[in-house]
Structure formats: structure tokens, C-alpha cells
Amino acid sequence: MMGIVASTYIILIVAMMVADMSYTSPGHIFEALKSKEIQYAIKLSLITCTVTMILSVMVAVPLGYFMSRFEFPFKKVIDAILDIPIVLPPLVIGLSLLILFQTAPGRFIESHVRITYTVYSVVIAQFMVACAFAVRTMYVTFSQINNRQEQVALTLGCNQKQAFFNILLPQAKNGILTAASLAWARALGEFGPILIFSGATRMRTEVLPTTVFLEMTVGNIEAAVAVSLIMIFSGFAVLMVVRLFGDKKVIV
């Protein structure tokens, strides 16, 4: 009985993808790939996701280390704050970002570098959500690594920084890979915040989820499905990389 319940869910997931595939054909996918707009969206998605991934890891590694290795006042509060982007509806993140850049400091930044409705805003919107997953992953990763090896390193002549880079970081390699892949995959699927904060302008702030949205609104379901399939396969490929090379214990 339990097996039937469990397998129903898996069958549903696979059925969705099979339905997508049956709705489109290789011809549709190639046609979609030939479109200049979609080529731009693929390029922008790849670039922004990669930038978001790098930024997320750069933030998640020190933050995860700090949270797992040090005790300080209001740690539980900060822990909860770090989860806000995970629990918040994506649209609300987009709206909040938009409002943030209407405040005085936000407007000051905008007066120097235009953020809202530009490519930069795409990265910021992706980063706000993706980074939370990377931080959570690194927090778990570092917490699971016993600090004994670092302590021995300290007695052998290391300072904290040397112990971190020489001893802890190499142990966290799989966790970092997992965090990076998750951030990338999250960024690829991000739509709500981008729609509000960056708009959906073709050849400017159009990423792949935006393409699906735009194609659907003009009734071009075949193209929307074709782009969806491109996303499903690239997301699946990234998740497979994590499963094959990553640390199973830290996958969230």
C-alpha cells in the first residue's frame, strides 16, 4: 500500500515530463533554439546562473563557517533570518527588492548604476533566493565536520585562517559542490522575483522561465513546452552531478 502511494508521486513527476515531451517534437525544440530571443534567454540564463552560483558560494562558505563554528548572541534569530528567502513567496522577494531600490540608499545606488529592470537585477533576484540554499548547505556541511582536525592543526602551528584553508575547506569539498549546484539550479528556475524586479523585456531581461511565460501569454504553447524541456534537462543534469559527486548527507 505504502509502495503504491510512494510510487504514485514518482509516476506523476515522470508523467509530467513525458506529457511535455509528447506535446512537442524535436522539430519544435530546434525551432525554439533557432529563435534569436530564445538564444538570448539561454545565454542570459547561463551567465546569470553562473554568476549567482559564484556569488552564493562566496557568501555561503564564510557565513556557513561562522554559523557552525562560533557561538554568539542572537544566533537563533540570525539562523531564522537566513531562512526567510526560503520560506517567503518568490513574488514577495521581488516586490521587496523593488521597494528596497525605491528607498534613499537604493535610489543613490540607482543614480550611479542602473539596477532595476536590468541584467544586474536578474542576478540580484536569483542571488537572494539561491544564496539561502547555499548557506543552508554550507552550514550543514561545516556542522557535520568535527573540529578535531582543525584543533590539531592549531597545535601544529596553524592560525585560524590556515586551519580553515588547509584543513576544513578541503574536507568540505563535496558540500561546496552541492551548494554550488543547488544555487545554480535554483537560479535557473527563478521567475517570480525576476518578473517583478527585472521585468520581462525580450532581448534584455529575458531568462528561460521568462521565455516560458512570454510564449504562453501569446499562445505559443509549443515553444513554451520546448523551452520548459530544455530547463528540465539542464536542471536534471545538475542534480545528477550533485547525486553522483556530492555528499549525500548534505543534500537539502
Binding site: 568535527n146 578535531r148 582536525q149 584543533q151 590539531v152 592543526a153 597545535t155 601544529l156 584543513i167 578541503p170 574536507q171 569539498k173
Partner: peptide, 11 residues
């Protein structure tokens, strides 16, 4: 220092 679990650098 030699800790009980040796704590060798496993990487």
C-alpha cells in the same frame, strides 16, 4: 598533541 581519535587529516 595526539588526540584520542588521532584526528589525522583525512584529505
Amino acid at each position: 598533541y595526539v588526540p584520542q581519535d588521532a584526528a589525522l587529516f583525512n584529505t
